[in-house]
Amino acid sequence: MVKANDRTKLILGCILTGIVLIMCLCGIFFTPYDPMAMDAAADKSVSLKHIMGCDQFGRDVFSRVLVGVKETMIVAGSVVLIGAFFGTILGTVTGYFGGWLDEILMRLNDAVLAFPSVLLALLIIGLYGGGRNTLILALGIAFIPSFARIVRSEVLRIRNLDYIKSVRLFGAGHLRIIVVHILPNLKTVLFSGILIGFNNAVLAEAGMSYLGMGVAPPNPSLGRMLSEAQAYIFTNPLTAVFPGITIVIMILGFSLLSEAFKKG
């Protein structure tokens, strides 16, 4: 299906993504401390007991980072799934049938695509209020156009191939051609699209929760941990640095993977 063209990128990407997945699993099943438990007397500095230290309320930063990774993965995963699902439907229909429907939908698509996803998500959150589900919905909608575009251009290419013409001569209906003959061939573009999209979704989620538009407090999220730690940046900078580095590892791992799998 896909061929890796850069071994170093692939290996490094796998290692980093592996670390993130392990952190995510820990966030689901096991955290060293209760991520919400406050302990005002706790020593805030980094120690063997608290390997990333504690935040201003005395909550263990490492436990909060683990749960934050899980939250980010859930949001980013759902966002990419929504974007890929509706984007594939939209792209297939417009690419296959063409005509005025294609013209109108693609103009609309381009208009949305030109709009930065953070801004679109802010608009939707302004309308319906914050929270995790609204954030997933808002970013999901913002991610549909890019998927629609890549799927559409691939469908346009496949539609005119000889084997499609021949099954049409055999009398296959539109639905059968789309489902049996076109959709399975989209997996390569969808795969790389999902890798890149996941990356952007992690970035967007972290940015939105930094702005306070994501997961509601006191639940931990990486972006919000950064903005909360910022008030104490000069006395306790590490509280901000650890969640930040976690975000960097997530994005770096996925971008290395997506580059390694890119059609070279």
Binding site: L203, A206, G207, Y210, L226, I233, P237, A240, V248, I251
Partner: peptide, 28 residues
């Protein structure tokens, strides 16, 4: 490759720490 993975708000915090706190080039 590394810089591309750093979101702007995190590099912003690092810049604040480096230029605002350590080097005192501006007042955050």
């Amino acid at each position: 490759q590394l810089i591309m993975a750093v979101p702007s708000f995190f590099s912003g915090i690092l810049i604040t720490l480096l230029f605002g706190f350590a080097l005192r080039l501006f007042t955050p």
